[in-house]
Write a protein that binds this DNA or RNA. Structure first.
Length: 808
DNA sequence: GAGTTTGAAACT
DNA sequence: CAGTTTCAAACTC
């Protein structure tokens, strides 16, 4: 697929964090100056937290064979590992790597996730993700609460013990995601080791030389927090006291001067002082996660929580974009291995779908030495399928999207945020030392100057699938076929997380269809992103494995961009999502051309009537190719045709205008009319009647309204009638077994009716014979009828009693 | 439900 | 860019 033009990056608002600017913290080395807390071996592994969460909470914990200490999360570049998020059969979400260490999300009950350090050959201490992306911090997600807790900080006790707030270290990139939830705890994700240069990445003890990057994603940032960025020159950045209440950022002096700056974000759970932190990193608006002491109750962070002030930090180069999330939606983020690093790939799914509360996510990280592959391709030989992710926050979101970072070229690009619905956080590629020098200065400045992002909507979700609330979602890397294998060299991970809304961003990315790949800007990060439509979820669930990573095709050029669902016809996503999409009936296009509404809307076909459909996960390669073709032909092909008005629907208009010739623009053939908007000057229609003063239009609209009213009335009448009938049946239907005393209708048999009629006739004859007046005759008949009823009732009651006596 | 009409998308 | 063809939805019967 083509690489997304760098312009996209330019489109990103300044608020988008530029992660490049952030310098990496030297890989924690034994003895070295690591960022991490000094936690001795004795220190318990940083567990997540915590106290048993509420039942609904899911915690992400590393399952790895924890050697025990989890101080810093580090990924060893050497090993290839894939990061997979798979949904376990059951609730727990685990991120496991083939390597011993892995993270798992566990149900809240599990309480804490301990981040164990597995093997970091280099650093030895810490969580090693072996080149793959990792979620270093355990986090808990409470489905019920729509909260995700990442990386709880150790409790104070731990701190006292010397355990430091969790620091994520990777040789490669690091990603810090902070969600500012109510609790305010940040989420820290560890990025895969980028290893721009293979040689460097691994081993050398000299981590300093390596530049690591952190990616910080802030979800629902608060204004309060202010990111602090250390300039490259400055080894340490000082966190401002400005930080808000709960957040503390400790900074440490850089171990080596040469070493790039490291950033550590820590959040003190308690206001209590944190243990000194090794390095300081820019703090993002979000909160820093610190390890919570075991004893401490876990906190949950609500991603969805609307925040007025999330601050995004732009770090030089790279940016993290957060798109506003208006409606609850789920986003799945999948990272695709970047080709550059020798290490492998990684797929990351972040996952979390909490929205409905009961979904479970499993994150697995596979650490196979083989390059990571995240492939979306059909090939299913081995891979892991990623499942869905986690939805966080958001109450009722109807859609989920998955964003999959694809391996990209060394330069990473931003993440786009497609439609207004989704908030995406752009991940920054971690450029290694090889990368051009990162202007620390700018980055810092940018961070400082970063504007807070306001989260418009309360719910932010990270998750993918659109699934029933209780279903479990998994994201697992799909087995990669050769074609689909992702390059292994660099494994940088990217996280796209729903973040605070960035209105500005939206327009820019609207044209990206799901599944599209954004190419990293030159010099940018390695990673690309892929957007996976909500339907993916369904498909993913269906298929055992889903390949998230792109095949070689992806590797070639681009990062994948993802796109949130595009608004259809100018309708808000909420609107579009609220109504079921019409199934397509494509027969010849394979649903890979814009003729297909599903495809045009960036959706997978689902429950359609199409033939030979390729618009599904099983034909991901073809689909991506088709998307590319469409974008080549028209970069705005997937952009909503109906631009939203500035402040009202009245301003909505078709982006290109219609070309109707015979319909008078008063039929649904006309895209303007179909979108319920007037034709504009840009339309090239002939004989247009779709304008404000058009009597035909008014008449039509009036009729349409009247029809709609009728339909509503009819519906209401039907509902009422149905209710009445139901009620009547309930009252009249004898229920023998109910014990209510009602008689079974079966007592009124044909014979009984005939007998009754005979009685009545007999009574009528009697009256006639006695020459009774009509009134009296009627009275006599009625009395007889009453007698008959009494007898019937009496017989029924007797029969019922008899039946009861024999337990019939 | 089959056939026709329509206009966007795709193609040349 | 214009003209033509293809396509699937909208529409009619």
């Amino acid at each position: 697929m083509d690489v997304v033009s760098p312009e996209l990056n330019s489109l990103l608002p300044d608020e988008i964090m530029d992660t490049e600017a952030i310098e990496d913290i030297p890989h924690s080395q034994p003895g070295g100056t690591t960022v991490q807390s000094e936690a001795s071996d004795d220190t318990p592994v940083p567990m997540e937290t915590d106290t048993p969460m509420a039942s609904e909470n899911v915690s992400l914990c590393s399952i790895a064979t924890s050697t025990g200490h989890t101080q810093a999360l580090t990924t060893s570049t050497a090993s290839d590992s894939t990061f997979i998020i798979s949904s376990g059969s059951q609730l727990p979400i685990s991120i496991s790597s083939s390597s011993p260490s892995f993270l798992t999300l566990k149900p809240a009950m599990t309480t804490s996730i301990a981040t164990t350090k597995t093997t970091d050959s280099l650093t030895g201490t810490t969580f090693s993700t072996s080149g793959l992306q990792k979620l270093t911090a355990p986090f808990t997600i409470s489905a019920a609460n729509h909260q995700i807790i990442l990386n709880k900080v150790a409790s104070e006790a731990a701190k006292s013990a010397g355990a430091q707030p969790q620091i994520i270290k990777q040789e490669g990139q690091k990603l810090l995601v902070t969600a500012i939830g109510k609790s305010g705890q940040p989420i820290v994700l560890q990025l895969p080791h980028t290893g721009s240069k293979p040689g460097i990445s691994q081993t050398s003890g000299d981590l300093k030389s390596q530049t690591q990057q952190f990616k910080v994603v802030t979800i629902g940032g608060r204004t309060e927090l202010k990111p602090i960025v250390g300039s490259p020159g400055n080894q340490l950045t000082t966190l401002q006291a400005q930080q808000l209440k709960t957040v503390q950022i400790a900074k440490k002096t850089p171990v080596s001067s040469a070493a790039p700056i490291k950033f550590i974000i820590t959040k003190t759970v308690n206001s209590k002082g944190l243990s000194p932190q090794t390095s300081v990193t820019p703090v993002i608006a979000g909160r820093v996660l610190t390890q919570s002491s075991p004893g401490m109750p876990s906190r949950t962070i609500t991603l969805s929580e609307p925040h007025n002030t999330t601050t995004l930090q732009s770090i030089s180069g790279k940016k993290i974009a957060i798109s506003p999330l208006k409606s609850p939606s789920k986003v799945t983020v999948v990272s695709v291995a970047s080709p550059t690093s020798n290490a492998s790939q990684k797929s990351v799914a972040l996952p979390v779908n909490v929205a409905l509360g009961q979904q479970i996510l499993t994150v697995q990280q596979s650490t196979s030495g083989s390059p990571v592959k995240v492939a979306t391709s059909q090939t299913t030989t081995q891979g892991i399928k990623a499942v869905q992710s986690v939805a966080v926050g958001g109450v009722g979101g109807s859609q989920f999207k998955t964003i999959i970072p694809l391996a990209t070229q060394p330069n990473v690009q931003q993440i786009q945020v497609p439609g207004s619905r989704f908030h995406y956080v752009r991940l920054v590629t971690a450029t290694t030392a090889s990368s051009s020098g990162q202007p620390s200065g700018p980055s810092t400045s940018s961070l400082q100057t970063a504007k807070p992002i306001v989260v418009s909507t309360g719910a932010v979700r990270m998750s993918v699938p659109i699934v029933p609330a209780q279903s479990i979602k998994q994201m697992a890397p799909k087995p990669l076929t050769s074609a689909t294998v992702v390059t292994t060299n660099q494994t940088q991970q990217r996280l796209i997380m729903p973040a605070t809304p960035l209105p500005q961003i939206q327009p820019n990315f609207t044209n990206l269809p799901p599944g599209t790949v954004l190419a990293p800007a030159p010099g940018g990060g390695n990673m690309g992103y892929a957007v996976v439509p909500a339907q993916y979820v369904t498909q993913l669930q269906q298929s055992p494995f889903v390949t998230l990573a792109s095949s070689s095709a992806f590797t070639t050029n681009t990062g994948i961009q993802t796109q949130a669902r595009l608004p259809l016809n100018g309708l808000s996503t909420a609107e579009t999502t609220s109504r079921p999409r019409k199934p397509c009936n494509c027969t010849k296009s394979q649903c890979l051309k814009l003729y297909c509404d599903c495809f045009a809307n960036g959706e997978f076909c689902n429950n359609c009537n199409c033939n030979n459909c390729f618009n599904n996960l099983e034909h991901e390669t073809e689909r991506l190719k088709a998307i590319k073709t469409c974008l080549d032909r028209n970069p705005e092909a997937f952009k909503p045709k109906i631009g939203k008005g500035k402040e009202g629907e009245s301003d909505r208009r078709h982006s290109k205008g219609c070309n109707c010739k015979r319909s008078g623009c008063l039929k649904n053939y006309c895209e303007c009319y179909e979108a319920k908007i007037m034709c504009s000057s840009i339309c090239k229609c002939i004989g247009c009647k779709n304008f404000e003063e058009s009597p035909e239009r008014k008449t039509l609209m009036h009729l349409a309204d009247a029809a709609e009213v009728r339909v509503q009335q009819q519906t209401a009448a039907k509902t009422k009638l149905s209710s009445q009938i139901s009620d009547l049946l309930m009252r009249t239907t004898p229920v023998m077994s109910s014990g209510s005393g009602r008689l079974p209708f079966t007592f009124v048999t044909k014979e009984v009716l005939e007998a009754t009629c005979e009685c009545l006739l007999e009574q009528a004859k009697k009256a006639e014979q006695t020459h009774q007046p009509q009134v009296e005759a009627e009275r006599m008949i009625l009395e007889e009828f009453g007698h008959c009823l009494m007898r019937i009732i009496s017989s029924a009651g007797k029969a019922k009693a008899d039946c009861a006596s024999i337990n019939c």
